[in-house]
Design a protein around this nucleic acid. Structure first.
Lengths: 210, 210
DNA sequence: GCTATGCAGTAACAAAAGTTACACTGTTAA
DNA sequence: TTAACAGTGTAACTTTTGTTACTGCATAGC
């Protein structure tokens, strides 16, 4: 684990902290599509992403979903940080988008390290900053953009995360994450296909140029 | 200023920190309707709210606005915190909603106090937490609610902040903050009036029961 | 092979929101 | 006093999004 830690967090944390993380953290490998945190669940540990990606979703009372953003290598979940401190329940759902490696750190260490290591404080503040900025981007999307633009952004974000030119999702799944209906997604995807930007296939979408 | 500090932040900060704030902070009184921070502006100090309220707005490329949330007594602006650390520009606009008293703290103190005072760290983390939660609420509104519900929530939030039963805004101003059109706001307000929930007047709205 | 099922395409329609246009009414400024 | 203007009410219309319904097609399981 120390090897992976150094590769991904070596530039951020001093050696002493890296060794502390190595001592108390546990490496977890999670397959794609696994729910690793749900709304209302209590949070006992904090994840540091080593590889892969996690999608963060919000849900309303009716069970309607919305994709908020992705977490990637070097990220941590600011929502988790946030909830740790308040000893509160999770407000979001987290599902692995890819096969993912992460180091789980017991929340007790949080406060200790925040006092002890400046690099840890900076990391935590940076995480909060990044998440606030992502949330602003999300708000921009749903407040200011029409569904066709939002769909385009969705496709772009997706290939950015997966590093592939094929999106393996059904129209229904995309509809859930954008909080719209399958028919609307099919309609808009079809016009993108007519514009030569994508190719539609059963269960996957080939990206030509976005 | 020390008096006001103790009243509003005495339960949060130890005496030593209160005195430090008193030493380096400057008390500012700002009239209602003043823009105290704009998008793209650099941030040099951090505000602690003593009284009044500030509304935080987001704007897109076309100049379209959206109200994100209000800051009140005891709050600080997590966006400011966030930008201080990154030495970045403001991503939001801040306008006083009421006559407002605040203490401005030079950003240099931020890091020093974060290392030195546990209570300050907790305050900063709490602020981040609160802001993330507000952002989630905002996302819930625009993603899951129809315009009529959003308008109702807007009116409720407004009277919560101002502690009055009269909202002194034109339909056009409300439309800007909800990012919709004046006609739509007039239409929805009229149905609320027909339901006996409000009374419409020129330049103000009387709240009956929401 | 056949059938059940899930996925995608499409039409037709409904609802919500946005737009344009214009009338009316207080208020303000000349 | 009168003209200009800002704020509001409302109708008519368009656009966008959501809904329902039905089709065909591919695949998995029998």
């Amino acid at each position: 684990m120390l090897q992976e830690l150094k590769e991904n967090y070596g530039h951020l944390f001093e050696n002493e902290l890296l060794h502390e993380i190595n001592k108390v953290g546990t490496l977890k490998e999670v397959k794609e599509g696994i729910k690793i945190m749900d709304i209302g669940q209590y949070i006992r540990s904090m994840p540091l992403l080593i590889s892969g990606a996690i999608k963060i979703l919000r849900e309303d009372n009716n069970g309607d979903e919305l994709l908020l953003y992705f977490l990637e290598k070097g990220d941590t979940c600011a929502m988790t940080l946030s909830c740790c401190l308040g000893n509160a329940k999770s407000e979001i759902r987290a599902i692995t988008e890819l096969d993912t490696k992460l180091i789980m750190i017991p929340i007790q260490k949080m406060e200790e390290w925040t006092a002890k290591y400046k690099s840890w404080r900076n990391f935590v503040f940076d995480s909060y900053h990044n998440r606030l900025m992502e949330m602003l981007t999300t708000i921009d999307s749903i407040a200011f953009m029409k569904m066709d633009e939002r769909l385009l952004k969705y496709l772009r974000d997706k290939i950015n995360v997966t590093k592939e030119d094929v999106i393996k999702n059904t129209h229904q799944e995309i509809a859930y994450e954008l909080h719209t209906s399958r028919v609307v997604v099919s309609r808009l995807l079809k016009t993108l296909e007519n514009q030569g930007k994508i190719e539609l296939h059963r269960n996957h979408i080939k990206i030509i140029s976005l």
